[in-house]
């Protein structure tokens, strides 16, 4: 059974590119454009891994991550944070909140896919 991946980003074009890559790699995929949608999808879709953009209006990626980790049923979900702000504070903050990895935009598609693969095989 194919692993399920949720892609969350408010930048439509980035979602389109991730959608193509993830599908191509053979994973099952859903997308969300903001934090609220993301949380709804997590409950509904129960993904194995989330590609989560940090900077989104209303509910930020950090907040989404924190809420997921608060729920004991979702502890197994891998979270890879995506951010365009490569500052160390933010990386630390994301990891502290329970993210498994941190990927800085713009990313190499191959590296990102390798990262996803690595976390799903753990």
């Amino acid at each position: 059974m194919a692993k399920k991946i949720l892609v969350v980003d408010d930048e439509v074009n980035i979602v389109v590119s991730l959608e193509f890559l993830v599908k191509r790699a053979g994973y099952e995929l859903r997308t969300a454009n903001n934090g609220e949608q993301a949380l709804a999808q997590v409950a509904q879709f129960e993904p194995d891994l989330i590609l989560l953009d940090v900077m989104m209006p209303k509910i930020s990626g950090f907040e989404v991550c924190r809420r997921i980790r608060m729920n004991s049923a979702w502890q197994h979900i891998k979270i890879i944070m995506l951010t365009a702000k490569g500052r160390e504070v933010e990386m630390t903050k994301g990891l502290d909140l329970g993210a498994d990895a941190y990927v800085i935009k713009p990313f190499s598609t191959k590296e990102l896919m390798a990262e996803i693969k690595k976390h799903l095989e753990d």
Binding site: E11, N13, I14, S17, L18, F20, L21, M55, A84, K85, G86, I104, K105, P106, F107, S108, T109, K110
Partner: peptide
């Protein structure tokens, strides 16, 4: 930086694809 990285991300991703 953010504003630059965001379009760059799309450009790079689709170029690689």
């Amino acid at each position: 930086t953010h504003e630059l990285r965001t379009p760059l991300t799309s450009i790079r991703a689709f170029s690689e694809i």
